[in-house]
Nucleic acid binder design. Structure first.
Length: 539
DNA sequence: TCTCACACGTA
DNA sequence: ATACGTGTGAG
């Protein structure tokens, strides 16, 4: 069930070849070439989270993502299906992962609880999809996979992975930036959209806390197959659902047996070993444990009075200002009372189980581009990522350490202290991109409103109304749009200048800025700052 | 809490 | 075959 074989735009190595022109020919019907205003199309872009059902399973249990010094991939991996792009326009797709709140968590009594205040925000990094920039046709052609994105807890990570603090809650966000215009980045009105799928929020950990999550990972991640019990998962599954859970994983068995009876290992899976360490004798999934299908209290949100999360929020706005990108951070798009997430969504009845309507939360806007030129200009950082073809991550890049540009960190929001110099960005490009991106990407609004330095320019304000889109919500991948089948190929990554040699960092630092708590955007929207702020203050 | 070598799996 | 993604459990 999980591994789809759907062709995807992988962020892995790849193939190359077809120049975009080629892709164009493949362009899905979706767009008419001369569709109206290509420029404005960004607002029409729709993004569907792939394997949303799987994400929801994790979410209901309280998704945890392992972070390691070397970098760990996320699972489920972040894959999306995109529609509505102008096939000829070039876009950059990137992800950033922002703090969902300013708490630190602990896992006690089988549930997540707030354990204090969050660590200061880390330098944020962006993970730019290696195919970027690529045409809309390319992105729409197949699933866009961010599976190579890695998370690390090493603040000095030289690989460009996204740096996170353990035991903190985060929200990944997808940003689609129009790169087209005249020349890749020189454009002046760089339009972009931000999509937030709530079910992708997670708590970072150095080792799994909730057994249920461990099991979900094992059962669904092909790389963890070795830990699965025998196939019949039934037993196990049923067990899981029912609160007792002697789940035996093969691994355990293996470990126990292997040493003594190696040959058995393979076969044991199904059996239940009493006394299995992981069996969780101590506590059963206590009452709090959500059962699938039943109403799952959102584990990640539990302590907080948050509202239930819709799947995705979708909002768009634009700013126009060609002013300095550096002032970033603070454009608080949110300030404007945004229309609540689309009402129509309610119609949507996703799948089988209960599902909150998903809202696609997206922000769209036009950013300034003046310095864009710089953004990619020296893009070395990209090199690897997009680069060559292959392996982005593979090579441990020369310790990048040095190409770091320091960014002045911005004071995030109250509560976050600014770190002095911690942010390290890799290249000019990076830096710029980062800053630009940051500027463009609205971080969350809420609390900041108050404290953030007023956006220097008024520009931010212009806010276009969110597209009333409707249900992107159908479940991610499956239903809606037909993904185009194709082999995985990627455009030459060289569109931008990426210098070979540069660190292969897919992720870029951006000024630490305020991580906006993102809990429930819809909520925020409704409340506006004040509400949210209040809400957030931590107790 | 976190880190590591490990067996075992994917690709 | 190689390279690398998994969770494990000792430390």
């Amino acid at each position: 069930m999980l591994q789809e074989k759907v062709p995807a735009v992988t962020d892995e190595g790849v193939t190359e070849l077809a120049p975009e022109s080629a892709h164009l020919s493949l362009a899905p019907a979706a767009s008419t070439p001369h569709s109206n205003e290509p420029d404005q199309n960004i607002e029409n872009i729709k993004v569907f989270l792939h394997e949303r059902e799987l994400w929801k399973k994790f979410h209901e249990a309280g998704t945890e993502m392992i972070i390691t010094k070397a970098g760990r991939r996320m699972f489920p991996s972040y894959k999306v299906k995109v529609t509505g792009m102008n096939p000829k326009t070039k876009y950059i797709l990137l992800i950033d992962i922002v703090p969902a709140d300013d708490h630190r968590y602990k896992f006690c009594d089988n549930k997540w609880m707030v354990a204090g205040k969050a660590e200061p925000a880390m330098p944020g990094r962006l993970y730019v999809h290696p195919d970027s920039p690529a045409t809309g046709a390319h992105w729409m052609r197949q699933l866009v996979s961010f599976q190579k994105l890695k998370l690390t807890n090493n603040h000095l990570d030289p690989f460009g992975h996204i740096i996170l603090n353990s035991m903190h809650k985060y929200q990944p966000r997808l940003h689609i930036v129009k790169a087209d215009e005249n020349n890749a980045f020189g454009s002046k009105n760089t339009a972009f959209c931000t999509h937030v799928f709530h079910e992708t929020a997670f708590i970072s950990v150095t080792s799994y806390q909730n057994h249920k999550i461990t099991q979900l990972k094992i059962e669904n991640n092909p790389f963890a197959k070795g830990f699965r019990g025998s196939e019949e998962g039934d037993m196990r599954v049923s067990r899981l659902q029912s609160k007792d859970y002697p789940v035996i994983s093969k691994s355990i068995v293996r470990q126990r047996l292997v040493s003594s009876h190696g040959h058995f290992a393979g076969k044991l899976g199904a059996g239940v070993l009493p006394g299995h360490p992981q069996a969780i004798p101590h506590y059963q999934y206590e009452s709090g444990t959500p059962l699938p299908g039943s109403d799952p209290p959102d584990p990640l949100v539990t302590p907080l009075p948050s509202t239930r999360e819709p799947g995705v929020l979708y909002h768009c706005f634009k700013h126009r200002d060609s002013a300095r990108p550096l002032e970033l951070g603070c454009k608080r798009p949110y300030l404007d009372p945004a229309p609540p997430p689309v009402p129509e969504e309610h119609y949507f009845r996703p799948a089988p189980s209960y599902e909150p309507p998903l809202l696609s939360h997206s922000y769209c806007g036009e950013a300034l581009g003046s310095r864009d030129a710089c953004m990619y200009g020296g893009a070395e950082g990209e090199a690897a990522a997009a680069g060559g073809g292959g392996g982005t991550e593979d090579l441990p890049p020369p310790p990048p350490s040095l190409n770091c540009n320091m960014w002045a960190s911005m004071p995030p929001y109250p509560g976050y202290s600014v770190q002095t110099v911690e942010a390290v960005s890799y290249q000019p490009f990076t830096a710029h991109f980062a800053s630009t991106a940051t500027a463009m990407m609205p971080r969350h609004p809420v609390p900041m409103a108050t404290q953030l330095p007023p956006p220097a320019s008024p520009d931010l304000g212009a806010y276009s109304s969110p597209p009333a889109h409707r249900g992107p919500h159908s479940s991610s991948s499956s239903s809606s749009s037909p993904p185009a089948p194709s082999s995985r190929d990627r455009p030459p990554a060289s569109l931008y200048q990426r210098k070979p040699g540069s660190p292969p960092l897919p992720a870029r630092d951006f000024p630490a800025f305020t991580p906006p708590p993102i809990r429930d955007p819809s909520y925020q929207y409704h409340l506006g700052l004040s509400g949210a702020g209040a809400h957030w203050t931590d107790s």
